[in-house]
């Protein structure tokens, strides 16, 4: 049992790393949101001349709100998965220890009296394994959705550069906002990609049965 201690720690570290990646993203997402608000203000200040920018600035704001909600959801799910993982590990450990009694002390006079407890421990282990799987799938889905959201953000940033090139007066201000959005989306995409990597590590360890 001691031999499995190190890889299991890796699994827990991988899950904690996802939470850490997302923690670093939250500040950036708030900046995107601020950029979205700025874009709306700039568009409003432009009056009739800014009419052409409005769909773009609305999109920036919408994406930023979606990103905030998304990161929040992913953080919660990552934390939940981390807790489930500890629970799962404890139940697997308990099952292995109970099972070793059943195997090593098969000749004990009262060995059968432990069967109901072993069954409960086994059921508990299976339940927590199933919960872990469900939470992993949910987290994967949330990461994919967030990744799509960041792709949209980068597309909106590109479009806004084209649109702003035709509006001379507010061109500089909106270019700054577009660049900020693009940089933030690219940064978040990188963090999401790291999170995927950590999640794949967890999957790989589980497939090896650890």
């Amino acid at each position: 049992m001691t031999s499995s201690a190190e890889p299991v720690e890796d699994k827990l570290v991988a899950l904690a790393s996802i939470a850490a990646e997302l923690h670093s993203v939250m500040g950036v997402v708030w900046n995107v949101s601020l950029a979205g608000k700025n874009a709306k203000v700039i568009s409003a200040q432009a009056g009739d001349k800014g009419r052409g920018f409005r769909p773009i600035t609305e999109s920036i704001d919408e994406i930023s709100q979606q990103a905030i909600r998304g990161v929040d959801e992913i953080s919660s799910e990552a934390l939940r998965l981390s807790k489930i993982s500890v629970h799962e590990q404890r139940s697997i450990d308990a099952y292995q220890r109970f099972n070793s009694v059943v195997k090593k002390d098969a000749d004990a006079k009262y060995i059968k009296t432990i069967s109901p407890a072993v069954k409960k421990v086994e059921d508990k282990m299976r339940t927590s394994m199933s919960e872990f799987k469900k939470s992993m799938n949910h987290l994967t889905l949330l990461l994919e959705t967030m990744d799509q959201c960041m792709l949209s953000a980068r597309a909106v940033a590109s479009v806004s550069r084209i649109v702003t090139s035709s509006g001379q007066e507010y061109r500089d201000k909106l270019t700054v906002v577009s660049n900020d959005l693009d940089k933030a989306a690219s940064y978040i995409k990188q963090r999401l990609s790291n999170s995927y990597r950590h999640l794949n590590n967890v999957n790989a360890l589980r497939q090896k049965g650890i």
Partner: peptide, 10 residues
């Protein structure tokens, strides 16, 4: 636990 089960029921 194994040693105990030689003496008493759980």
């Amino acid at each position: 636990l194994g040693a105990i089960l030689h003496h008493v029921k759980v």
